[in-house]
């Protein structure tokens, strides 16, 4: 896996990380309440993994943080921004928040390099040459410097997801959101993406990760949050929540996920 050795950060040295503070967050679709009063703090530089059964609201919570979903009640502070303030400059806030999707969502009409430069030039108004340099450094960082000219349909799922991470990193985010980043991948490419994420965590990036990769959560996360039915059931250091959960629902979930016939540990 030499291919994904991460090179030291080329532009600004260490990551400038932001924290997140979520308080009493509620979100409903019609009469269906998906988030029933969630409070969660993420310190700058902290890595928090959100785990839980599908439909537990973890993706919705993540999407509320950069306002892809509009919460109904409660507050979210990201870096210096009050996300739930009606007057917040959404676009300015989102520049600080990188988002990685389950389905990658690369722009299919642009090659890997342009995927990483388009928002730099159009949003941050960086000159093309500077944007190119930053994009190449970030593609290098995810181990794909040699595939900068490829279009998304010429890349494997794992490569596409790493380009998506490089695209987000090119905006110099202070917080990265990952929405099940490995769930749509072939098993053999999962490890490459996870190792990119692991290195990002080491560099001090604040990360909020929705994942089913318990091995990754255990190894990389500072804290694990178990959600079920729109509430936080249990949270704590990874070893404790995954290793010796106290709540019945957490135990039940982990028993099913960690069932030996399903186990997938990258290392």
């Amino acid at each position: 896996m030499n291919d994904v050795e991460i090179h030291s950060r080329t532009q600004s040295g260490r990551v400038h990380a932001a924290g997140v503070a979520i308080k009493d967050l509620r979100k409903s679709y019609g009469s269906n309440e998906v988030l029933k009063g969630i409070s969660l703090d993420v310190a700058p530089g902290e890595v928090v993994c959100l785990i839980g059964p599908s439909g537990s609201g973890k993706s919705t919570l993540l999407r509320c943080v950069n306002l892809l979903e509009q919460p109904n009640e409660g507050s979210i502070h990201v870096g210096g921004f009050d996300a739930t303030d009606a007057d917040v400059d959404i676009d300015k806030m989102r520049r600080k928040v990188g988002m990685v999707f389950q389905q990658f969502n690369l722009f299919p009409h642009l090659n890997a390099l342009r995927n990483c430069t388009i928002a730099q030039t159009k949003v941050l108004k960086r000159p093309q040459a500077e944007a190119d340099k930053i994009a190449r450094a970030n593609l290098e960082r995810v181990g794909l410097g040699h595939l900068a000219d490829r279009f998304p349909d010429q890349l494997s799922g794992g490569q596409q997801q790493r380009v998506a991470i490089a695209r987000a990193l090119s905006m110099d985010p202070e917080l990265m959101l990952f929405d099940e980043p490995t769930s749509a991948l072939d098993p053999e490419t999962v490890g490459d993406v996870l190792s990119v994420m692991r290195n990002l965590a080491k560099e001090g990036m604040t990360m909020l990760v929705v994942t089913h990769e318990m091995g990754f959560a255990r190894e990389v996360a500072d804290r694990v949050v178990f959600m079920d039915g729109g509430v936080v059931v249990e949270e704590g250091v990874a070893e404790q929540v995954i290793g010796s959960p106290t709540q019945g629902r957490t135990k039940e979930f982990l028993r099913r996920v960690l069932d030996p016939t399903h186990i997938e540990i990258a290392e």
Partner: peptide
């Protein structure tokens, strides 16, 4: 055009029109 395309663009800080 899949909705995820708009979401990805907006997540990068692009305004709706952009």
């Amino acid at each position: 055009v899949p909705k995820g395309q708009t979401e990805a663009a907006r997540s990068l800080g692009m305004p709706q029109w952009r």
